[in-house]
């Protein structure tokens, strides 16, 4: 069967499919692609068959060699450069791979996650219904490393066709009040004047923010009973550090969650590089749900 072998892989690279929705009862978050829209775009680019899982590559991309019969590969997400046998190709784009082809994917101007999706299935045994690596729960194949070989199986699924994702929004990141927003009291409105910055401490589980004005420096939530977390929750650690919990979040937590980034903003947030300045703006539940269904801002 066909396979790829990595000679170089960015830190933070994993295999991802749609994840494991509905498994909180077993202690696992849904997980799935950090930039879900880009993952879906990869599926749409394929014309014959679409594997359910993709390579989710970290900011530095990956180099790999393909072995086997001719294959389609769709690439999408962020801004990366791609060379096939030394020739520059399109990103995003659909490319044909032949036996022995060498693929080099390197960082571009923006973005943290790129996707390579194939017209065949990645040969990883599904765990709890998914091939996704969940780094917090320890499910799936873990992080990809140089030397890894990934085999392929025949894919049975047709490409998903024109599924509409969320629009790529602009401006401050939209949030809803979190489970513990009332702890902020009248300071809730001031949250939208505060300046934050994405730090280099990020992974699939969460993104630490630099609280540039010390908005949360004196925040003291006291002792809270542990309760459910959702992706996008803005959690404040005991020392006042804000952390936005992402796809591989721990299913429950005891730190206060003052706000929750709306679903339609999670992809944009996931692609923000360290050093990106960040502000929040309030959204309504109705607006968040309309945007999640692909409505305009």
């Amino acid at each position: 069967m066909s396979a790829i072998t990595f000679s170089r892989v960015s830190p933070g690279s994993t295999v991802q499919d749609e994840g494991r929705p509905g498994k909180r009862v077993y202690g696992a978050a849904a997980g799935g692609p950090m930039d879900r829209g880009a993952f879906l775009e990869g599926g749409r680019l394929l014309t014959e068959k679409a594997g359910s899982a993709a390579l989710e590559l970290g900011m530095l991309g990956a180099d790999f060699t393909y072995a086997g019969a001719g294959a389609q590969m769709a690439v999408s997400g962020g801004d990366f450069k791609i060379l096939i046998n030394g020739q520059q190709r399109g990103w995003p784009g659909l490319h044909q791979l032949e036996d022995g082809d060498r693929v080099e994917i390197t960082t571009g101007q923006s973005g943290l996650y790129g996707y390579a999706r194939f017209d065949r299935e990645i040969d990883i045994e599904p765990v709890m219904g998914s091939r996704s690596a969940n780094l917090m729960a320890g499910l799936g194949g873990g992080a990809l490393t140089a030397g890894d070989r990934i085999g392929f199986l025949q894919a049975s699924n047709s490409p998903p066709g024109d599924t509409s994702g969320s629009p790529w929004l602009e401006g401050p990141i939209r949030v809803l009040p979190g489970l513990h927003a009332s702890l902020l009291g009248s300071r809730w409105a001031d949250l939208f004047d505060a300046d934050f910055e994405i730090t280099s401490r990020f992974d699939r589980m969460g993104i630490r923010l630099n609280d540039r004005n010390g908005f949360f420096a004196e925040f003291d939530a006291g002792s809270l009973v542990s309760d459910f977390v959702v992706p996008g929750d803005v959690q404040i650690l005991g020392d006042g550090t804000p952390v936005i919990l992402m796809r591989d979040h721990q299913p429950t937590g005891g730190y206060p969650r003052v706000a929750t980034v709306i679903s339609a903003e999670l992809d944009r947030l996931a692609q923000m590089r360290p050093g990106t300045r960040l502000q929040f703006q309030p959204a309504t539940l109705a607006e968040a749900q309309r945007l999640a269904r692909g409505g305009a801002a």
Binding site: L176, L179, V225, D227, F228, V230, T260, I262, Q289
Partner: peptide, 17 residues
């Protein structure tokens, strides 16, 4: 009842187990 993001809600019965 508290919304939890835009696709979930929590029915919370107290602060003490």
């Amino acid at each position: 009842l508290h919304p939890l993001g835009d696709a979930a809600l929590l029915v919370k019965f107290g602060n003490d187990v």
